[in-house]
Design a protein around this nucleic acid. Structure first.
Length: 565
DNA sequence: GCGATCAGGT
DNA sequence: CACACCTGATCGC
């Protein structure tokens, strides 16, 4: 849970993702995405009153976030105070102190965060330097190098501070299977089930939060069906999503919810109460998207876990893993890092200080926010940790990792392997939600013709798979040597039930099928290499070299004017 | 009656 | 593990 107090040290007159307490005095507000834990105070009466008397206070966010926010009537009073910004379009924003008239100019750029529809990171450039507020994000390895506006020419911008979503910035969450791997596994399970008969139905037990939409669109496409959901209202202006969801219960894939669902769902009923028209009972399995992570030493493709006769958990994460965060930070090389949650357990912080001999000349500290009890100065004195927070060398074991073997688990059935995934989905690229957005309001009957309205996104993203096929990752690339050495051949891998052994009745299957070792190409999917021509992600060797040179006092970071628009 | 906070649940 | 909620109880205004 984000404990970010809302303000950045460099630009205390803007508030991001927090709208209570000190943030009531902000000159401008920023919302990175539409999750409740980032909207604290946003519907508070104090802020509501402030808006009434203010001509200049605005809330900046993406078009999609604006749409999702306003689909909830409780936030309707914001309507005339929201300024939706295009992605990747640097925008000059003037912060005005309404009492004194004092002005402060900033250039703010929204960068896609891959966390949920509309989610963005805020890149802020101004007199106090360039800072990046990540909000919540899920970016794959190498993604930072593909974001043009993090660069100035061919070089990464000089970033003073990163305000980081550090949810999984802990070695225990070393690796999380890629979005494509998870999607592929879920697709396989759904395929296995719904192909049995028209009465075989899948219930996706998703949380009441945005972020599962790309699962719906992908499964919808794959199985030529729409996914049953509770409401379509919020997607009115997002034809790509809208066309894949329905309120018609007569479909084999459901993601509907009911306040008190959990109990009676796996038995035979869906939250929506749907049943076959001829009285035949439906065969229902539930798939619960959950975050499952993979420590270095438990490298195995446990992407789907069977938790009962007809219930499964499927790996699914909105947040970047430790290794993805590490890659992100290694690439950006910020001077300061402010984690949004306490970075790691004090008891196992030793790993932080490994490699201290490589400490660079350039000051590099891990900042920690003032604890809530030491208010009222949110961007208060940081707590500098004296050594490098990023260890690009060997990862040190922190705690024993995830070996919760209390449940029977399935290993992902690899079928065609992951090499072919680029042809199935926009592999290697996070979903680009703005593409789904239109200013038109479509009715249900119009949604059979999905289209993206490019006029709302004149500056297209380099992350957009559909527009940049050359960015597709070739999963067959050789592992970087370091990454390769980190992969431990698993000992005897426990065999789970193969997906193909599911009974029609959902009984636990007695038969076991030997699972083959993942091939290198399958395992390497999280160590892919970016292919953007004019940029590259430094590999572990590059970084070690870089640190060595920094430690030797060489000037390797060339400063460029970070004020360029 | 409302909001904020906490406990407990998925 | 931790997420992003939800519900209900309690407290204060």
């Amino acid at each position: 849970m984000s404990s970010f107090a809302g303000r950045m040290k460099e630009y205390p007159n803007m508030s991001l993702d927090r709208f209570d307490r000190e943030n009531l005095h902000a000159r401008a507000y920023f919302l990175s995405h539409c999750h409740k834990d980032h909207m604290k105070g946003l519907k508070g009466p104090l802020l509501k009153r402030k808006l009434k008397f203010s001509l200049t206070v605005k809330l900046y966010c993406s078009f999609v976030t604006k749409e999702l926010l306003l689909s909830n009537p409780k936030y309707a009073f914001w309507e005339d105070h929201i300024v939706a910004l295009e992605l990747e379009s640097p925008t000059l924003i003037t912060l005005i102190d309404e009492a004194s008239g004092e002005k402060e100019e900033l250039v703010v750029t929204l960068l896609p965060a891959g966390h949920c529809p509309g989610s963005v990171m805020f890149l802020v450039e101004g007199a106090q330097g360039t800072v990046l507020y990540t909000g919540d994000f899920r970016l794959a390895k190498g993604d930072a190098s593909r974001i043009e506006l993090l660069h100035s020419g061919s070089r990464v911008k000089d970033i003073k501070s990163v305000y980081l979503d550090s949810t999984f910035y802990d070695p225990r969450f070393y690796q999380i299977p890629s979005r494509e791997t998870c999607l592929h596994a879920i697709r396989g399970l759904v395929q296995d089930w719904v192909s049995r008969s028209a009465y075989h139905t899948v219930w996706l037990n998703c949380k009441a939060a945005y972020g599962y939409e790309y699962l719906f669109t992908n499964l919808g496409d794959e199985f030529h069906t729409q996914i049953h959901v509770k409401s379509l209202d919020m997607f009115k202006k997002m034809p790509e999503i809208l066309s894949h969801v329905t309120t018609d219960r007569a479909t084999q894939i459901h993601a509907c919810r009911h306040p008190k669902d959990e109990e009676f769902v796996p038995a035979s009923r869906l939250p929506c109460g749907s049943s076959a028209s001829d009285g035949t009972p439906l065969n229902i399995i539930s798939i619960k998207p959950s975050t499952m992570w993979f420590g270095e030493r438990t490298q195995r493709t446990k992407v789907i876990v069977r938790t009962g006769a007809s219930s499964y958990r499927a790996c699914f994460s909105f947040h970047s893993s430790y290794s993805e965060i590490k890659d992100f930070l290694s690439y950006l090389q910020p001077i300061n890092i402010y984690p949004s949650v306490i970075p790691i357990d004090v008891d196992c912080a030793d790993w932080l200080f490994e490699g201290a001999d490589l400490a660079p000349v350039r000051k590099r500290v891990m900042m920690q926010e003032a604890t809530p009890t030491t208010l009222p100065n949110p961007p208060d004195e940081p707590l500098p940790l004296t050594h490098i927070p990023l260890i690009t060398g060997d990862y040190m074991d922190c705690t024993e990792s995830n070996d919760d073997e209390e449940e029977r688990y399935l290993e992902e059935e690899e079928r065609g392997g992951e090499r072919d995934e680029g042809s199935v989905s926009n592999s290697g690229t996070p979903p680009h939600w703005e593409e789904f957005f239109t200013t038109e309001i479509l009715t249900d009957s119009q949604t059979s013709q999905p289209h993206s309205c490019s006029h709302t996104s004149p500056s297209h993203s380099t992350l957009t798979g559909s527009q940049t096929p050359e960015l597709f990752v070739d999963d067959s690339v050789k592992l970087p040597s370091q990454a390769e050495s980190m992969l431990i051949q698993s000992e005897d891998r426990c065999q789970g039930d193969a997906l193909t052994n599911l009974d029609a009745g959902g009984e636990e299957s007695g038969s076991h099928t030997h699972q083959s070792e993942p091939t290198e190409s399958q395992v390497s999917s999280d160590f892919d290499i970016p292919s953007t021509p004019d940029s590259h992600t430094p590999g572990p060797d590059d970084l070690s070299d870089l640190y060595r040179r920094l430690a030797a006092g060489e000037e390797v970071v060339t400063r460029t004017g970070s004020q360029s628009l």
